[in-house]
Design a protein around this nucleic acid. Sequence first.
DNA 1: CAGGATCCTCACAGATACTG
DNA 2: CAGTATCTGTGAGGATCCTG
Lengths: 126, 126
Amino acid sequence: MTTFPGDEEMFEQPCPIRDVLDRIGDQWSLLILEALEPGPQRFNALMREIGDISKQMLSRTLKQLEQDGFITRTLYPEVPPRVEYALTPLGRSFLEPMQQLVAWADTHHHMIVAARARYQAIQEQT
Amino acid sequence: MTTFPGDEEMFEQPCPIRDVLDRIGDQWSLLILEALEPGPQRFNALMREIGDISKQMLSRTLKQLEQDGFITRTLYPEVPPRVEYALTPLGRSFLEPMQQLVAWADTHHHMIVAARARYQAIQEQT
DNA sequence: CAGGATCCTCACAGATACTG
DNA sequence: CAGTATCTGTGAGGATCCTG
């Protein structure tokens, strides 16, 4: 436990966008959200779909996303246990502006790569 | 130096969006880009505008943004030295989808905060 | 003025093991 | 099946000092 007593105060993030970027800027959140876009998924299904995520990180990230209201977690009291994660309307609405960004990334990525190559070339002609 | 010989291979990022998120997901890149939106700025002007960034992080982040073609760095060989940073067309075009996301964050942030409060409340009624 | 070099530290990811 | 607990290292970022 890294938390301490006064921790659950849920300190206000001064800047909304930072709050959002902290959530989706991490390695996995966006991947999970997009894996959930077609429909609800179970834990191990997400593991398989994402591929190289550890159980721990998947678990942590899902909990964060749930906390922030992007997804819901539904436990079906069966045996063996079944848990389904699904996008909330909030999570789904978030995906819209995000798709814009993804589209931008797709169309402009080659320019970034080119810029890096250019920069590197200049560095090398010392 | 943390780099090693084979480092400058500029390994391909398999996923464009990750490449972009890695750049703007960090604490400062977006802040800098938006600080540059009105027009070119000098190093110390950026320091003042952003407020709580260290020289080191500003320097590093600017270099990254320059490498990736989001901004240009222009050194005026005067004394004292003057360096101006400015958005490239690429950087400016990036700001458009980003504004969408910022707008989303602004309008939905209260829902995130509310979701957290709700989650916390449930946790406490153990 | 605009940074680079160095050192430090601490929060966070990965591995492993255990559980309802 | 769907997680939690603990332990540990690693690397990003801060502080400080130095330079063209």
